[in-house]
């Protein structure tokens, strides 16, 4: 459970990486829609973890 929460926080922090120009330029250079793709992938990961945590919590702890 704690593991999932830590990963979730890490994923949310990763949303802020493109604030650094070096990284955002890198994403866009690699692929024109790289930055969009980056945020979309992070969102999907967060959704996956959120639902996984939910399944565990609702199935066991409550």
């Amino acid at each position: 459970m704690k593991k999932y929460i830590v990963i979730s926080i890490m994923v949310i922090i990763l949303f802020y990486i493109p604030m650094f120009k070096l990284f955002s330029d890198l994403f866009v250079k690699a692929f024109n829609f790289g930055l969009m793709l980056y945020w979309i992938v992070l969102t999907l990961v967060a959704v996956f973890i959120g639902i996984k945590t939910l399944k565990r919590l609702i199935g066991e702890a409550l």
Partner: peptide, 23 residues
């Protein structure tokens, strides 16, 4: 595209909250 990051970080964190504190 920064607007997408702004709106998706909301969605991502909300699903995380709904999955952990929400239940």
């Amino acid at each position: 595209v920064a607007a997408l990051g702004f709106e998706l970080v909301y969605l991502a964190s909300t699903v995380v909250i709904l999955g952990s504190i929400g239940p």
